[in-house]
């Protein structure tokens, strides 16, 4: 006991004041606590499954006419009970997104009437300009972080794979064209070697992709996109991380401006 006391004797008043400040900080809720206690919503599991499938359909990731996995497979995959999946499929049927056929080749299918482009048009019209700009800022930040790392880490043969994917872009099939461009974008950011950043990019790409189909129909903006992406690829191959970031920002600016132009034309 005695030795402990004497060890504390030399502490100066500044250290004591510092301690006091620290304990005041500890008593105050931290800035992050605000987000910690945000509402997590009270959506039931069936509703979460429904929302996940609905966004895949309206986003065009499950195509019209495509067969959904079986109820049991979906239940295992989502980690929920088969009855929960059944409940969500019922809701999707009532929204007209899914149809169910009986018989040997039966099952649940994406409704033929589910048109992702129509959904994207509605979504774009309902999105404010500030939200579009913010989506662009988020997308640019993640992509820029990825290509900065990719420029430092990728080897030329890997970059060449992205380039050969871009070379297969075919304007005669716009759906294929968009999915090839999405794949090339993901393949490029995966060269960052960061799983977290790549997953975030995929999430953002899935969000943007249906809206990008709306600007793909315009020849000028369609042809601008591969060229803009190619300049990011060039910078990554050259190992020039600053140019890769700058080229990414030019690419995202062009896309967001095209979306905003389209939005103001249709208002």
């Amino acid at each position: 006991m005695h030795s402990t006391d004497s060890a504390e004797t030399p502490r100066n008043s500044a250290a004591v004041a510092d301690d006091a400040a620290r304990s005041r900080d500890a008593a105050r809720p931290g800035r992050l606590q605000g987000s910690l206690f945000q509402s997590i919503g009270d959506a039931g599991r069936a509703e979460l499954v429904e929302r996940r499938l609905a966004s895949a359909i309206t986003g065009g990731h499950l195509r019209a006419g495509e067969r959904l996995p079986s109820e049991n497979d979906l239940a295992r995959s989502f980690g929920v009970a088969p009855t929960t999946v059944r409940e969500s499929l019922l809701a999707l049927r009532s929204q007209g997104l899914v149809v169910t056929r009986r018989g040997r080749n039966g099952g649940s299918f994406v409704a033929d009437s589910a048109d992702p482009v129509a959904h994207a048009r509605t979504a774009l019209a309902a999105t404010s300009r500030v939200a579009l700009r913010d989506l662009g800022a988020h997308y640019a930040a993640i992509t820029a972080a990825c290509v900065r790392l990719a420029a430092r880490r990728a080897v030329p043969s890997e970059v060449q794979q992205v380039r050969s994917r871009l070379a297969r872009l075919d304007e005669s099939d716009l759906e294929q064209w968009r999915s090839t461009l999405d794949d090339a974008q993901i393949e490029l950011v995966a060269l960052s070697q960061s799983a977290r950043l790549t997953r975030e990019q995929m999430r953002l790409q899935a969000e943007m992709s249906p809206m990008l189909r709306l600007i793909d129909v315009d020849e000028t903006s369609r042809q601008a996109q591969p060229a803009l992406l190619a300049s990011v690829v060039d910078a990554v191959e050259a190992g020039d991380d600053h140019e890769a970031v700058a080229a990414t920002e030019r690419m995202v600016d062009a896309v967001i401006n095209a979306l905003i132009d389209l939005q103001s034309q249709s208002r």
Binding site: H61, L74, A206
Partner: peptide, 22 residues
């Protein structure tokens, strides 16, 4: 271990052309 279902996870995973993957 569960069988991988690609549906609805992200960008067009179902349609990724894996023949190009290393």
């Amino acid at each position: 271990p569960k069988r991988l279902l690609l549906a609805a996870q992200s960008v067009n995973k179902e349609h990724i052309d894996y023949s190009e993957l290393e």
